[in-house]
Nucleic acid binder design. Structure first.
Lengths: 176, 176
DNA sequence: AGACACTTAAAACCATCGTTTTACATGCGT
DNA sequence: ACGCATGTAAAACGATGGTTTTAAGTGTCT
């Protein structure tokens, strides 16, 4: 599956920077240095390619969020942005472009968001010493909000979100 | 400009539900019940049409946010979602689809986000009795975060964001 | 050597893209 | 009745869309 990985890497870049619909197959084959025949043999269709890209991105993103504490969490988010750019969440953008009309894509998106939610719940639990679903949701809002705002204001906005998250955690700690 | 308004209303709906790139001119002319000639005479191009749609949406959205207090603010957001659906911010989606390659579209998006930021700043000022830029930013995160999360979880998530916003306001009040 | 799996380039497929053009029908002020 | 702006329908424009097919070139295993 070496060739598959190479294809996904090249294709992910184009989908991310140009959008799913706006990127034609010719550019995908050219960038991945592979014939369209091979591409279709491996992924079946353009949407099949997109789901493969999203699956790979899901794994890569969550690996980056394998940290302890909300400070490290938002630092990791900012790191991601500085490496990958601030074009917003690729999953939500893809959902918008396909309009939920493709079942495979929709499923990958839901799975990713559920995994992200769980990851944030774990981080919150370590921070405050107990599960706190409401707090985890609030951190999730800050996380998604920072991702959205960074689109037009850059990665710097993440530190504001991190500060807000720290305050929320502090208030929720059982001490005091 | 009666016909222009009718065109924008029909076109906005299609762009919003199907995406900018994925929606062809034939569908736009058909839905707005207008010839392509008229459409091009009024808006010049497809991207010109998109900028007109975004301008109209900017005005309509901000008119809905002409409220007092963060509770009313998030209530207004939830109302908007129940009427218009939860497909995320059309401005950010359009930014993602065009990749910042169109200057006109980019300008409208920036103007809208700046206006939204100011609106939230005013609401915060009324709530706490003074300007508080950091607090306004945090409310903005919650606002954008709720918009993003509602895409895959529905309008109900807004009440969680509203609760979080209320807590932030309460902590920032000058009293005791 | 021969079979097999896998790749390639290139053309063909039909559909649709955004845009412009041609030719014709209105309504309105004067 | 005239000119003029404004509308229509429909075809044409060249380009590109996603997908499949054809024909030929690899290397590897037995």
């Amino acid at each position: 599956m070496d060739i598959g990985i190479r294809i996904i890497a090249a294709v992910e870049r184009l989908f991310d920077t140009n959008g799913f619909v706006a990127t034609g197959m010719d550019r995908l084959t050219q960038a991945s240095d592979v014939s369209s025949r091979t591409l279709y043999k491996h992924f079946g269709s353009k949407t099949g390619l997109m789901t493969a890209v999203l699956s790979a991105r899901d794994a890569r993103f969550l690996r980056r969020l394998d940290v302890r504490g909300v400070v490290a969490l938002f630092d990791a988010l900012e790191d991601w942005m500085r490496v990958e750019g601030t074009r917003g969440c690729l999953f939500l953008r893809t959902a918008g472009e396909t309009g939920g009309r493709d079942a495979g894509i929709t499923a990958v998106i839901y799975a990713h968001k559920k995994a992200l939610h769980r990851r944030l719940g774990e981080i919150v639990e370590v921070e405050v010493g107990r599960t706190d679903e409401d707090l985890a949701e609030q951190i999730l809002f800050l996380f998604e909000g920072a991702t959205a705002e960074a689109i037009y204001r850059g990665p710097e906005v993440v530190s504001t979100a991190r500060t807000a998250a720290e305050a929320l955690i502090r208030d929720a700690r059982p001490s005091a």
